[in-house]
Computed example of a mutant assay.
Amino acid sequence: MIYFDNSATTKPYTEVLDAFVKVSSDYYGNPSSLHQAGGQAEKLLSQARSQTAKLLGVKSSEIVFTSGGTEGNNLAIKGTALAHKGRGKHIITTTIEHASVHNAVKQLEESGFEVTYVPVNAAGQVSSADIKKAIRKDTILVSVIHINNEVGSVQPIWEIGQMLQGFPKILFHVDHVQGAGKLPLDLYDCGIDLCTISGHKFHGLKGTGALFIREGVNISPLLSGGDQEGRKRGGTENVAGMVAMAKALRMSLDLQDKKSAHLKQILGTIRAGLEILPEVTIHTPVHSAAPHILNFSIEGLKAEVFVHALEQKGIYVSTTSACSSKRHAPSKTLLAMGVPARLAESAIRVSLSYDNRLEEAEILLKAVSDTAIQLGEVIK
């Protein structure tokens, strides 16, 4: 099997699975319990929090553990809205956000909030100047994805953060789910107040994640309960999952330092091979793009059919994001970039991990070419 759907989820590292099993088996106490077993679990949770914070370059007290990207994004956005609605009910985001951001602000619109959706250019990038133009006196939050999950366009997070320094009452949230372990992001230097990561995107386990909440920032919890997670997220903590996530993040960041050039070489090989196919249109920009995502269309072919045809050859890719792939609708990201609907409907996403090999890229290119010919003949 050749797995090129790593933006949907990654294969957990063996060491990560081992850590999860070890903690689940030997340190299963509730970290809120007063007895020794609870104390041992609490110590492990604290160590995982400290390690996660250190890897992200922030303070331990600024890390809230969550169940993943969707919860983290919802907590950041709705938590900000609930806590600051007395000051304003206007939110700014972009037209290319992940569904967990897009649908969260849509839900807030139903509750009386106003949302401005700032457009992107043909490369799938938003302008900090356009965001500044959208700011109003009642704006309380700007939420921008770091790396778009469908086309891999990288947003100018530092520029946006610097611009927002002139508006200290506006909180800045960044969805860093696709960037963690792939592209560095200095949370302090970029002026970020809230930042989301998800464990299963960097070889951790599903159901694990974290939200960075800068010291001094106030948001309301979505899950009311006990005093866990600094009263930002009630519920018994997933100790084993968070220990495993911290290990996965450390291992991924180590590989980021060692194998980034390798990842770019594989993606570059795939792009070069696709560019010479006359029926292919590549949507991922050449510059300011992630090192692990490539989105392209084959005109006249349905994306779902193409995905299943490649699957028959043992190659796994995807259409839009996994969260939206079953709706059979054109990618809203591509439409926002000005891509015609006929091409958006045939878009394929290839997404890599550090485990992928150069020879897999060559196998993929031959399979794409052969499959395009085969399906084209069927259509004719």
Rank of each mutant, 00 (worst) to 15 (best):
P330K: 01
N74T: 02
D186K: 10
V307C: 03
A83W: 03
L222K: 03
V217M: 03
S260P: 14
L253P: 09
H292D: 12
G57L: 02
G300E: 04
Q178H: 11
T284S: 15
G166N: 15
F306T: 02
R250S: 15
E377R: 05
E360F: 07
D227I: 02
L263Y: 01
E15C: 09
A272C: 04
G88T: 05
W158H: 09
S32D: 07
I293E: 09
L255Q: 10
C195D: 05
S67K: 11
Y13P: 09
A341M: 12
A210G: 10
S325M: 14
V58D: 07
C190Q: 01
F20V: 00
D193V: 10
R214V: 13
D26S: 14
H90W: 09
I373K: 06
A81L: 10
I298Q: 08
F296D: 01
L253G: 15
T139K: 10
N73V: 03
L205K: 02
G314K: 07
Q165E: 08
A134Y: 04
N148G: 15
Q36T: 14
C323N: 15
A41K: 03
S325K: 12
I157T: 07
T236W: 06
H90G: 13
G241Q: 06
I213S: 00
E299N: 11
T80R: 00
E215V: 08
V23P: 04
A210E: 02
A76V: 00
P221Y: 00
E229S: 05
D355S: 12
K85F: 08
F212Y: 12
N149T: 03
G124A: 02
L255V: 00
R136G: 13
E215A: 05
Y13F: 12
Y3C: 01
R87F: 08
A344I: 00
L44K: 00
E215G: 04
G226N: 06
